[in-house]
Simulated assay, not measured.
Amino acid sequence: MGDEEKPSRVRMTPGARRVLEAAERLFYERGIHAVGVDLIAAEAGVTKKTLYDRFGSKEQIVVEYLAGRDERWRGLLGAHLDAVAEQGPAARVLAVFEASRAWVAEYGAKGCGMINAHAEISDPAHPAHPVITGQKRWMLDLFTRLAREVDAGGADRLARTLMLLHEGALVAYGLGVFPDPFGQALGQVRDLLGEGAAGKRDVPPR
């Protein structure tokens, strides 16, 4: 999870893996609160005792679900960024949005799993809460680093704008209110990067 505090994780046995695979599907499709441990155990083909022996609590299953999803997202994003590593800062910013477009097409039919989870888990004391907020802080940090390469003087403002466009596209995709929100966001980002490049010539880096 980057530099943020890492949650406690469970060692995956075959039984634990079956539980987690069932929970991941059910939590994303139906919601975390709507899915109980009885259903997870039944879908995984294990007893409730096995479930609790492996995870200890439903809360820990939620941690594993979200942390695993976060790891997969960061892996996909990293591959997209590596692919454009030599193409300049604008290409790297655009690659984040292209990665998200690819992610939702494969894993995000119902929108962002972190945003959906936060709608149900708003208590900072919940062990999964740092996973949710940690991913979004990490994304803002990433946008800030990339924005400094585009316009060092206006990096914070540009990064927050990019973050808003990114998160808005995730929400719009999940709601299905209009087609291809990431295509819309990419158009806005290209406009911003054009302005940022001009600004970089006018404002010396600090």
Rank of each mutant, 00 (worst) to 15 (best):
E120I: 08
G15K: 14
T144S: 15
E167A: 12
D82K: 14
R9H: 05
C112P: 05
A169Y: 02
S8G: 10
F55M: 01
R17N: 01
F55C: 01
V189E: 13
W73F: 15
D123E: 12
T13W: 04
D123W: 04
A42M: 04
D82E: 10
V150W: 13
R17A: 15
A99V: 02
A83T: 02
G75I: 06
H33R: 14
V10Y: 04
C112L: 03
D151C: 10
H166C: 13
A119P: 09
A197K: 11
V46F: 10
I121P: 09
L142C: 09
G68P: 07
Y107C: 07
G194V: 11
S8I: 07
T50I: 00
S100F: 11
E98Q: 15
M12R: 10
G176V: 12
D38V: 14
G153C: 13
A128K: 04
L186T: 15
V10W: 00
G196W: 10
L26I: 07
Q87F: 01
A34E: 07
A95T: 00
L192Q: 13
Y107K: 14
F55E: 02
A185T: 07
E21W: 06
G78W: 10
G153I: 00
I121F: 01
E149T: 06
G174S: 07
K48L: 04
V19H: 00
A91I: 00
H33E: 15
L164N: 15
R17D: 13
P14N: 09
